[in-house]
Structures are given as C-alpha cells and as structure tokens.
C-alpha cells in the first residue's frame, strides 16, 4: 500500500505543472513518443528532475529526522538540530553574496553544512562530551546560532534590489531551479547517508531504550550515535545545498509515520522514507501550480502539513511514547 501511495504521488507529480501537458502526453513522452519535441524537453529536463529531487529530498529529510528523534530520544528533534541547515544556509547565501555560479553556491552550502557539524563534534570532543547527548545538542545550538548570525550579516550586506530577494527565497526552500545535474550531484551523498541508516536500523532502534540498555544488548551507543549523526548530516547537507532550507519535513513526517507504525525504528524507517518522498513530491507539485510565481516550499510544508498533522494527532492512533 505504501509503495502504491508513493507511485501515485510520483505519477501525480509528473502530470502537474504550468506547461500544458495532458496525462496522455506525459505517458507518451515517457515511453519515448513525445507529441512534440518541446514536450520532451519540459518533461525530461525540467519536470522529472524536480519530481525525482523532491522524492529524494523528502525521503532523506524524513529518514534523518526519524533517526535523530530515535537516537536523541527526543520527539522535538529535527535533522538540523545540530546546525547543519544553518551552516549550509550560511555557506550558500555567502555564495549568493559573492555572486558565484550556481554549482559553487551548492558546493559552498554542502561544505559549510558538513563543516558546521565537524565544528560541533570538535567542540563536543574538546569538552569530553561526545557521550553526553545534551552537550552535543548544546554545542550544536551554539554553532547554529553563530551561523544564523552570519546569515543575518550577509543579508545586511547584500544588494537589497538584487541579491536579497534571491537569498530570502533560497532560505525558504525551493526546487524551482533544479536540473538533472543537481540531482546527479546530490544523489551519491544522499544514498551514502541513507544506506547506513537502513542497514543499521535494528541497532539504531535499540538506542531508544537508553545507552545502558543498549550496551547490555551489545550496542556501543556512542559510536553508533556518531554514525547516525554523520549519516543524517550528509543527507541533510546534500538536500539543503540543492533545495534550500525546507523546514517541517524532518520534524513532522517521522511523527506522521509513527502514527501508522508505532515507535520501533526498524518499522518506522521505511514508512518515513516513503511518506517523506510522497509528501515532498505533492508539495512541490503544488508549489509550481498554485500561481505563476513559485511558492517557497518552506511556506507550503508549514501551511499544508501543519493541519494534516494535527488532524492525524486528533484521530488518535499510536503515539510516540507508547
């Protein structure tokens, strides 16, 4: 059923867009008989890369969020709790300020995102606190605040007519400018980050019991947590560097998935992956269809996702704390 829902979302995403293409046109183009050459360009160069990128990014953020919430044993944790989004955001807006080419902006976003987490880890290690979740999180918050200050400074220095609108739009997240090359660039990092999470989903689930319990079951909590942090950082930095900062998905989708599966991480992860992908594809389809103007994803995820989540919550079902 899950796979069916995801396939439905992907198909819907491929059908919808401002360029007039009927479902038949889309189907014909997909099997290699486009009604006209322009249809092929629109579908292969513009719309499908977006759909694929949306699915990848939605899945990545949801999985990272689910993993974080489990290993930090805290339902309010999102994948950017340690500052990866702010760091990547700072790198990217700095790139915009310097007028760099798009690829360099993305690279700077990715590098700064990874760099931020490296800094957090280094500080936490220096404080001998790698084993303590609280110290790591506090270090993350401090570094994130620093990156946030950097973003504000860049906004202040940016040309208000030219660069500032671009920076603001980028910080709200969008797939408007996505290309095949962007998907190809983000794919390895996202896959490399997701594979350990999927492979180690049993062990990661044990961390929810607490470090001591996990240790009695033969899981080295500190090292596993480090691995989860690195994996989640990798996928989040890759997602943010191509799509900008998209809030809400990493925090809320794991909860929505949990309402279906309950808290066990090994069951939660596949559902979170599929739901994140489907949701992001649909939200991105809405972003390009609602108006002639692109609507930033960050706004849509909050406006559409918030009520859905509250409705699910009100319906009851299984909860986090089970």
């Amino acid at each position: 059923m899950l796979a069916l829902g995801l396939a439905g979302a992907l198909a819907t995403g491929a059908m919808l867009g401002p360029y007039p293409l009927s479902p038949v046109d889309v189907a014909d183009t997909l099997i290699g008989h486009p009604p006209d050459p322009q249809a092929a360009i629109v579908l292969w160069n513009i719309r499908l890369p977006r759909v694929v990128a949306a699915a990848l990014i939605g899945a990545a953020l949801a999985a990272a969020g689910a993993a974080y919430q489990t290993v930090f044993r805290n339902p309010l944790v999102a994948p950017d709790i340690l500052g990866v989004s702010q760091g990547a955001g700072f790198g990217a807006v700095l790139g915009i300020l310097l007028g760099l080419p798009v690829l360099a902006i993305q690279l700077m976003g990715f590098a700064f995102g990874i760099g931020t987490i490296a800094l957090v880890m280094a500080i936490a290690l220096a404080l001998r606190g790698m084993g303590q979740v609280l110290v790591v999180v506090l270090c993350g918050m401090a570094v994130a605040a620093l990156a946030g200050a950097g973003i504000s400074l860049v906004k202040l220095m940016a040309d208000p007519d030219d660069q500032l609108p671009a920076i603001t739009f980028w910080l709200m997240g969008s797939l408007a400018g996505i290309k095949q090359a962007d998907v190809a660039a983000a794919l390895p990092a996202i896959v490399a980050g997701l594979l350990p999470l999927i492979a180690l989903r049993w062990r990661i689930g044990l961390l929810a019991l607490g470090d001591d319990e996990a240790r009695t079951l033969g899981v080295e909590a500190g090292r596993l947590r480090l691995l989860v942090i690195l994996s989640a950082t990798l996928v989040t930095a890759a997602a943010v560097s191509v799509a900008g900062v998209i809030g809400w998905v990493g925090l809320m989708v794991p909860h929505m998935a949990r309402l279906i599966t309950g808290p066990r991480f090994d069951r939660l992860l596949p559902v979170a992956l599929a739901m994140g992908a489907a949701l992001m594809v649909l939200v991105d389809a809405a972003a390009r269809c609602i108006a002639q103007q692109e609507v930033p994803l960050g706004i849509l995820t909050a406006v559409l996702g918030g009520p859905v989540f509250l409705w699910l919550l009100a319906r009851g079902g299984r909860t986090w704390a089970e």
Partner: peptide
C-alpha cells in the same frame, strides 16, 4: 502578468509555457 509585488521567482517550466520571443537579462552569468 501584473502581480502584487515587483520581483518574483518562477519555474523554468513556467517560462517554457510562456514561450517568450525575447529574453532580456541583467545577469552576465
């Protein structure tokens, strides 16, 4: 078309649908 605000961001697909005959740009890149 006339919009509420001056600057806006659109998707390339939207530009394909508009099919403009001339593009004027202020960005050398």
């Amino acid at each position: 078309g006339a919009g509420p605000d001056g600057l806006l961001t659109v998707s390339p697909e939207q530009v394909q649908a508009w099919a403009p005959e001339v593009i004027v740009t202020i960005d050398a890149d």
